[in-house]
């Protein structure tokens, strides 16, 4: 129920912004510009849908195959850089939105991953998640930009995880 409410909250906010912006466009720029904008939106929609469906299919198929539990064994407190690398890789490959990724942090923690690996995991998911990259970034902003940006940010979760192991903030998974 709470999840439902959260999702609808952002839907309502974006809907209100869209209506306000739509009215402003119509009022300030005229009916022509209003229709042009709607046409652009429709165009973009048709452009994204094939990637969207493929991305969703890839995500749900991967979910049937991956077992985060087994991988967490490689992500313990003394797993070193290798553990951070595995955590980064798992995060990059983790499909789905926040409703899937954050509970997964708890699963990994329960299976033995340490705080550095968990920070690396969640940052890799949000920065370099393959779904976002393939469905949105590459089609919308161009493959060149998407690849170069990913190359720049790929090592960043490992750096953050390495730092997180040294930051004096203790964290225990909530019961």
């Amino acid at each position: 129920m709470l999840i439902l409410l959260r999702r609808h909250a952002s839907l309502v906010v974006i809907f209100l912004i869209a209506v306000t912006a739509g009215l402003a466009t119509w009022h300030l720029r005229g009916t022509g510009a209003f229709m042009t904008a709607l046409w652009h939106a429709w165009d973009l929609f048709l452009f994204i849908v094939p990637s969207l469906v493929a991305g969703l299919l890839l995500a749900s198929a991967l979910r049937q195959l991956l077992s985060p539990d087994a991988l967490a064994r490689w992500m313990g407190a003394d797993s070193g850089l290798f553990g951070l690398f595995i955590a980064t890789l798992v995060g990059t490959l983790s499909p789905g939105g926040p409703m899937a990724a954050f509970p997964l942090v708890l699963v990994l923690a329960g299976a033995g991953a340490d705080k550095g690996a968990l920070v690396a995991f969640i940052l890799a998911w949000s920065l370099n998640g393959f779904q976002k990259l393939l469905v949105y970034e590459a089609p919308l902003l161009g493959l060149d930009f998407a690849l170069l940006r990913t190359l720049i940010t790929f090592p960043m979760p490992m750096i953050a995880g390495w730092l997180a192991r040294r930051v004096p903030i203790a964290w225990e998974p909530p019961k």
């Binding site: 739509g22 709607l38 652009h40 994204i48």
Partner: peptide, 22 residues
């Protein structure tokens, strides 16, 4: 997943398009 995300698209894409006009 597709039907869950579709309503978002229907409001987010026009929003971005209107903002880019403005």
């Amino acid at each position: 997943g597709f039907w869950r995300i579709l309503p978002m698209f229907c409001v987010a894409l026009p929003m971005a398009a209107f903002l880019s006009e403005l």
